[in-house]
Structures are given as C-alpha cells and as structure tokens.
C-alpha cells in the first residue's frame, strides 16, 4: 500500500534484516534451502504471505523471502542492486521503469484493484452510488490528490463529471478508513481491498464509475546475472503460483480482481 510509505518501509527494513540473519544461518547448514526473494507492494502483504506459505509447503526445501514496501521504494531498491528474484508492484508505471532499465523480464498483470465507497456499518447516510456523494451536507472524506488513492479518486470523479465536496482530504487510505470507522465521516473513497482488510468496521459500496481508475498489479522475474536454470525455474513457478487458481482465489478473497 503506497499510501503508507513510512510503515511499509519500516516493515521492509525489518524483513530485510531478518532475511539477512536467516541467510547467514542457512549458509553453514549442509542441507541449505533454496531461497526465492520476492519484492512486493505493501498492499499485497496478506495475499503474498499466504501464497508464500503455500508455496513453501508445496516445494520442500524452498524458502520464500518477502520484502514488502511501497512500489516506488521497491523500484529504487532493485535499481540499486537489491537481491530480488521476483517483483510485484501496485502499478504499471513503477514496473515500466524496471522494464526500461532492463532489470526485469516481461511483466504479467495478475490483479487489479479499484475504488469503492466505504461507509460505517449499516450505512446510516444511505449511500448507494457515487452520485449520492455529491450532497454538500454529507461528511465525505477522500484521499488528497497528492497521494495515489487520491489521484485515482480525482480521475474517477472528473471522468464521471460529478463534483464532490469532501470535508477532508486525508494523507492516506488509513486516515480515510479511520474517519469512517469512528463515524466521523458518512462516507470515504478507498480501494476495494482496503474495505476488505478493514473488517466489520466498514462496509463497501461499489460504483460503476470506479472502472475509470483501475490499478493494475504486474509481476515479473528480476533478470539474474548468473544463469542458474534450476533457480530460474523455481522463480517462474512462484510467478505461476500467483497467477494460478489458488493464488487468484486468495487475491479475490482480499478484494482483488483478476485482470
């Protein structure tokens, strides 16, 4: 989730550190495991943790290392030579930069995410459509245009020709969700996956105009300098797992939509 750069980066750093410790321990182990290092956008955390776990169960002796951060941070890390095998970003723009630098193979889209209206449980304001959000008396909270979810909101709203009167343009999806959960806001605009993750505190109201700003998640193998065909095959198997039925089912459970 790019809207939470701080937390995502801290998590990534923590994971990288623990990965380093783990690798150091493994190198002295005669039955050393094969490692697949996956760099993924923070919004994929839950999905990829489950996919990695399933992958490790299916492939004896394989260890999947997850490094989770904001997409732009992931790109910067790989550009600086971070040891990644797979990269999954939350937008095509980030992936395109890696492609342009020749750092990854051909990307494949594996999921999409789109906006949804989040309302407090029971939907007290009776929101049913994007049009309902134009009521100036409504306490509507959105992301600021400067952050990705806000940019998507702006795109959807301008495409629909409607005018919204938000009472607040928040810093992040989390801030929007919080305002809805505590009932300060009557409605907020966030991603479908955010509603799914927020649990029973909020309800989602989908709207057709969301199609104007669909976020596509691409995945690609990072180009390796040494030609270890066994390892390359394993990496491809992980990418296939994400795109396979089990991976797609997990992603769908979390609100992602297949491309």
């Amino acid at each position: 989730m790019t809207a939470q750069p701080h937390r995502a980066r801290a998590t990534a750093a923590l994971l990288a550190a623990s990965a380093a410790v783990g690798l150091a321990g493994c190198s002295t182990d005669p039955g050393a495991e094969t490692t697949v290092t996956v760099f993924a956008a923070a919004s994929l955390t839950e999905a990829f943790e489950q996919i990695a776990h399933d992958f490790e169960t299916a492939h004896d002796g394989v260890d999947v290392r997850l490094s989770l951060a904001g997409s732009s941070d992931l790109v910067a890390q790989i550009q600086q030579g971070a040891p990644a095998d797979v990269v999954a970003s939350a937008d095509t723009a980030s992936m395109d930069r890696l492609v342009a630098d020749g750092l990854v193979g051909t990307p494949q889209d594996f999921a999409t995410n789109s906006l949804e209206i989040a309302v407090p449980p029971g939907n007290p304001a009776g929101i049913a459509s994007l049009e309902d959000l134009t009521d100036p008396d409504l306490h509507l909270v959105v992301c600021a245009p400067q952050v990705p979810c806000g940019a998507a909101t702006t795109a959807v709203v301008s495409d629909s020709g409607l005018t919204l009167h938000p009472v607040s343009e928040e810093q992040s999806v989390t801030d929007v969700l919080h305002k809805v959960v505590v009932g300060e806001a009557d409605a907020g605009i966030v991603y479908v996956t955010d509603v799914a993750r927020a649990g029973p505190g909020v309800e989602g109201v989908s709207f057709p105009q969301a199609g104007a700003a669909v976020n596509t998640y691409p995945i690609a193998a990072v180009t390796q300098t040494d030609a270890d065909t066994d390892h390359a095959a394993l990496v491809q198997q992980f990418i296939d797992a994400v795109q396979g039925p089990e991976g797609q089912r997990l992603l769908a459970d979390l609100g992602f939509v297949a491309p």
Partner: peptide, 26 residues
C-alpha cells in the same frame, strides 16, 4: 489534528499537514 480534524485546504490543513502532504509529490 490529522486524526481529529482531518485535512482540507483553508479549513483544517495547517502548515505541518501541508508539509507532510507536499512531501508525497513535491
């Protein structure tokens, strides 16, 4: 402020909130 009041230009977005938001893009 960001937790309680929100963030809207001219209404609730004070200078520190503006700094934090501008950091994203500029």
């Amino acid at each position: 402020t960001i937790t309680f009041a929100g963030s809207l230009q001219g209404v609730t977005r004070t200078l520190p909130l503006e700094v934090y938001l501008q950091r994203e893009t500029d």
